[in-house]
């Protein structure tokens, strides 16, 4: 290992194949290390599940102050969850163009549903909409996260 400098000659097909396999193995190991643990999805789901509490606060000075404090705490907890995962994994994920496209599609879909729920609450006083949206999203994060992880490791 210490003296592994290449000789400068080109590898044989067998050596090249072994090198490709070693590279593939390193990438597979990295992908496995990047798989988020159960607590990551549980934390995200919990954060999403409690988020409707912010919409239940009264429109008073105290209520608005509480809303701001709640949002600051929520964003801090969200950031800490992401940071803890990256810190423990020791790796920062890199998304391919296709993965980035999927993330954007997912965010657009969630944003559209969230907007619809907000319109139902604000325009039609349907308070249940925001709560239902958040709870369904929380369950989806948990199920997709845990199921996706299991499928990837299978």
């Amino acid at each position: 290992m210490e003296t592994e400098e290449p000789s400068g000659r080109r590898p044989t097909p067998e050596e090249a194949r072994a090198a490709l396999q070693a590279a593939q193995s390193a990438q597979t190991d990295a992908a496995a290390a990047l798989r988020p643990p159960w607590w990551y999805f549980a934390s995200l789901a919990a954060l999403v599940a409690v988020s409707p509490l912010a919409t239940q606060l009264p429109s008073t000075v105290a209520g608005i102050t509480a809303f701001i404090v709640f949002m600051l705490l929520w964003l801090t907890a969200f950031g800490m969850t992401l940071r803890l995962f990256i810190s423990r994994a020791g790796l920062v994920p890199r998304f391919s163009r296709e993965q980035t496209r999927r993330v954007w599609l997912c965010m657009i879909a969630v944003g559209a549903l969230g907007t619809a729920a907000a319109v139902l609450k604000l325009g039609f006083d349907q308070n249940w909409a925001m709560i239902a949206f958040a709870e369904i999203l929380a369950v989806a994060i948990l199920v997709i996260g845990l199921f996706g992880g299991r499928r990837a490791s299978a």
Partner: peptide, 26 residues
């Protein structure tokens, strides 16, 4: 092409960045 350097590059190609200790462990 040196075996460990190939593996280092392969690992780093799969991520945005990696912590030294994690690369060492991997």
């Amino acid at each position: 092409h040196a075996p460990n350097r190939l593996r280092i590059c392969a690992l780093l190609d799969a991520v945005e960045s990696a912590e030294f200790g994690t690369v060492q462990q991997q």
